[in-house]
């Protein structure tokens, strides 16, 4: 019997063994720990959930103000406030396990030992699909970007954490390095299963009346549509340097924004700041990508990955 029904394009994809029903994830720090958005977004539709950064013990984060809007984006300096490993597992994992959506945990530490400890403690927690290693947060004094902007430190840290976890390990790279391809390659050689990029760009806003920085932390990380072309370039450069999958993010508001990342070489993408603007962004992006694949006669999203032409 002839199949006359037009088949929908296959949106399924896989990152380091993590099977996702589509390639659209939410970026760490923009989606809380899951329940916050559950009334507004069907969590079962997401490719994956990446929760806000977790370190070993509860962490208070920075003073306020922690966020300021600028044209085309916002600066945040939350400072990785979080409940710690045990607090997160106890409070949020029972909720997150109800969904048919992989959960990735973004982890960080103030030194190498804490990164290792956090990774090791998540190893036996049921329901966690992978670890995103935050080596690029610009808003804390220790840890974070200090690792992500030094090739040797980044490489050593990934190697050490790699030994402490069986979960897929996905370092999140900083955008503010001269050759992101070198960091991508170093991550791959150190044992990363995939990489994600970009994190926010270090940035600053000054109140000219008071002549003081607007953020209590003085500086913050810029995200939103303003960073999108920067992110596309960094993903494209990283994709040429590695064979492991890439999760592309930075300023996605539309399916078109997401498709640029895929064409540049990203296997999956993540929506961040736009979750604040419009919580339906993720589902809109998924639907728009399907429409694009149909229009271009593509049967699977995987056909588009890295398909950029000269």
């Amino acid at each position: 019997m002839a199949d006359t029904v037009e088949t929908a394009p296959d949106m399924r994809t896989e990152i380091a063994g993590i099977r996702m029903k589509n390639p659209v994830m939410v970026a760490s720090g923009t989606f809380g720990y899951g329940p916050e958005y559950a009334d507004l977004v069907d969590l079962n539709r997401l490719g994956a959930i990446v929760v806000k950064g977790i370190c070993a013990e509860p962490w208070g984060g920075n003073d306020v103000p922690r966020m300021v809007e600028v044209r085309g984006g916002l600066l945040n300096a939350i400072g990785l406030q979080g409940p710690g490993v045990d607090g997160f597992v106890k409070t949020y994992m029972p909720f997150l396990r109800q969904f048919d959506t992989p959960v990735l945990v973004n982890i960080w530490g103030r030194d190498e030992a804490e990164y290792e400890e956090v990774a090791a403690r998540f190893d036996d927690v049921p329901g966690i699909a992978g670890l995103e290693l935050n080596i690029s947060c610009p808003n804390i004094k220790e840890g974070g970007i200090a690792f992500g902007t030094d090739l040797t430190m980044a490489s050593d840290l990934i190697r050490r954490v790699r030994k402490r976890t069986r979960l897929p390990l996905i370092p999140k790279l900083a955008p503010n390095v001269p050759h992101v391809g070198r960091f991508a390659k170093a991550a791959q050689e150190a044992g990363a299963d995939a990489i994600s990029l970009i994190n926010t760009l270090p940035a600053m806003v000054i109140d000219i009346e008071t002549r003081r920085p607007v953020l209590a932390n003085k500086v913050g990380g810029l995200s939103g549509p303003a960073v999108h072309p920067v992110a596309v370039k960094q993903v494209w450069e990283a994709a040429q340097a590695v064979s492991i999958p890439i999760i592309g993010m930075g300023g996605i508001e539309t399916a078109e924004d997401a498709l640029e990342f895929v064409i540049a070489g990203a296997t999956a993408v993540a929506v961040g700041t736009a979750n604040f603007t419009d919580p339906t962004t993720v589902t809109r992006v998924i639907d728009g990508m399907v429409t694009y694949l149909k229009r271009h006669g593509l049967s699977s999203i995987t056909e588009l990955v890295g398909s950029i032409r000269d």
């Binding site: 922690r66 966020m67 945040n76 939350i78």
Partner: peptide, 16 residues
């Protein structure tokens, strides 16, 4: 009243 981001508890911007 604090500078607010998401408005629903996810971003941790408007804390007191």
């Amino acid at each position: 009243d604090k500078h607010m981001g998401c408005g629903i508890g996810a971003c941790l911007a408007c804390v007191q």
